[in-house]
Design a protein around this nucleic acid. Structure first.
Lengths: 349, 349
DNA sequence: CAACAAAGAAAAATCGATTTACGCATTCTT
DNA sequence: AAGAATGCGTAAATCGATTTTTCTTTGTTG
């Protein structure tokens, strides 16, 4: 009997109340830490809670609030280290504040992004951390605005007129990559990337180009981009090389681009850095153990997650004022995949 | 006014009811697809729903049920492709059934695992997909049993007396790796891995050893394992090689082990497959673009996720019977990192 | 000591659904 | 044609908390 009750039905606030000989309202106050309860009664409540193993039902607890203690997170994907770490961080930060994080993957689809958002709106989430598939001007952000949702935009965004934004300082990082490559003597550089529409791609491209041209006006910068899918990018890159183009360095604006570039190098039998140099935006654990180690721009995941949550909770708690656009500085790790083009000329194709 | 209402307060079932001129109970029935409502009334409800943009509040809707339409997922981490894909799949499957997935990372800690589970129990989740940090005998599974929770155990498990389990067929895959390596002529093989306590490590090790010995009784198999952390493993591996041990192939039982092995090869200037062969459990996208491409055992993520959810929902819907332990077959991709030891002897250290 | 203020707790309303119990017409049996 | 069965709805109870309102006490003060 007792056993069965333990297993089947959890004690409610009323069970605690009757056990402690007080009303449910008093139990609620004690649980919430309100101080206007006589110490003696509070103790009786604590004892009953202990005895019954009572824990507040967060679902019932959220019923009466307009803003529930749930945060939604929407990421383009979960498979990469970047978003994996991001979700881990966000979850941890939400938990610290007593919120539950519900994460969902838009799987690189703007349509799904909006569907997920609608479902999160159904849950009356207190706020949303959205890493949009393309940029801040998509239907998802519009949905959030139209429905008066609280949220923060991260990663593939620059700034918005309704929401706070937090992203990596792509332009500065790209400028540093440009300095490194120009400094090493590269004068013909190919930039590859996915996500033509992503706000950050423009920033990365422009930041790179401006700095490279400023340092070496004679530099030639070619660009090969594709929208969402990897295969079109691969095809375009293949065409580019098939035309006989022979840049001395490749700068990839996204992780997937780095993988595509590497696999094209493989196909052609080129090795880094002797035949060609490579540096990519987005670091990954494997990049430091391969031979050669791959140079990469490291995004400050913790800072992005931290500031995003900070901004979000400030808004949830009623913070006013114009939206803030934050840019977090990146680190550029120049590894073995980058060398000097002088050294790469001895055995030309 | 109207605008404000649109933005601030979402319509409730009562708003729909009064607009349609019926009771809330009738609206509830129409939304649930009950057929005992007069078509005319149903139409009025649909119209009102359309007009007001009404959507059921899942939180309120779950209030009255014992089993809420929420599924919990606990993974050791989110940073690797394997668990990233797993969460993506689980989320998609939960959504298909009208459930919300709440995912959390135990960050490789059994203590956190239990805390998360307690929180999910507070939410009265209908079921849990748990990928335990160590194995099925940890405190998390015990907690689930003690509280009568419904759940499925995946990945680092073999079988359990209370829960259905789904995992990769580590033993068979390892046997195939053994056949490949022995077939290529390797007679001194090092097995490295993390997670001594993981159920699957034992299976992988035993499967490998049994088959290798059966095919080549003279084979020498060394083992270097560490519990949870990467650094102790790295140190042990370094010691092992420092002693002058010179296996012709390394089989890593976990992704992190593969990374550690690769970085140790780097340190010593060894190249695959000429100086040493390498094959790892767990595939990753980058493994096919590096030079050499890294041989790997591919785990069937979709199958594991699919069968886990199938088993879970069967139990949620009251399915009886003894727990089922499922093993899903893996694919072994032999890539360039594996060669013949004959070829690797020309330039010995 | 009457009058009034402040404390503290209980009662009741509320959040937004679902579900049960029951009422009122019709329709079906025999 | 009386009684049972059925179809379709509604009112009210319920889920488990929080919050507002009301009601006792107790304490203070003129």
């Amino acid at each position: 009997m007792a056993h069965r009750q333990d297993q089947q039905r959890r004690p409610s606030i009323h069970d605690v109340a009757s056990r402690a000989g007080v009303s449910a309202a008093t139990v609620s106050k004690v649980m919430a830490g309100v101080t206007t309860v006589k110490p003696e009664n509070a103790q009786r409540v604590f004892d009953a809670v202990e005895l019954l193993g009572y824990r507040v039902d967060p679902l019932a607890s959220d019923m009466r609030r307009a803003k529930r203690r749930i945060i939604g997170a929407i990421m383009p994907e979960f498979e990469s280290e970047f978003f994996g770490q991001m979700v881990t961080q966000l979850e941890s930060l939400a938990e610290q504040r007593g919120y539950t994080l519900v994460a969902a993957s838009s799987r690189e689809s703007e349509a799904r992004e909006t569907e997920i958002l609608a479902r999160m709106h159904d849950w009356r989430v207190a706020g949303v951390v959205l890493a949009p598939v393309r940029n801040e001007h998509g239907p998802a952000a519009a949905f959030m605005k139209a429905n008066g949702m609280t949220g923060v935009l991260i990663d593939r965004v620059l700034s918005d007129d309704a929401f706070d934004t937090v992203s990596a300082d792509s332009a500065s990082a790209s400028a540093e990559v440009a300095r490194e490559l120009i400094g090493k003597g590269h004068r013909h550089i190919l930039v590859v990337g996915l996500g033509e529409q992503a706000a950050t791609v423009r920033a990365r491209l422009d930041g790179f180009r401006a700095t490279a041209r400023a340092l070496a006006p004679d530099v030639r910068i070619d660009v090969v981009l594709a929208e969402t899918d990897v295969e079109p990018l691969r095809a375009r890159l293949r065409d580019y090389f098939a035309k006989g183009e022979r840049p001395t360095a490749v700068y990839s604006l996204f992780l997937k681009g780095t993988l595509v570039a590497l696999s094209e190098f493989r196909r052609r039998g080129w090795h880094c850095p002797n035949d060609i140099s490579l540096v990519g935006f987005d670091d990954a654990e494997w990049m430091q153990v391969t031979w050669p180690a791959i140079a990469a721009v490291v995004q400050p995941v913790r800072q992005i997650a931290g500031h995003a949550m900070e901004a979000l909770f400030a808004r949830i708690e009623g913070g006013e004022g114009p939206p803030i656009a934050r840019l977090e500085p990146c680190r550029v790790l120049m590894r073995e995949s980058v060398g000097s083009p002088i050294l790469s000329q001895p055995n030309p194709t």
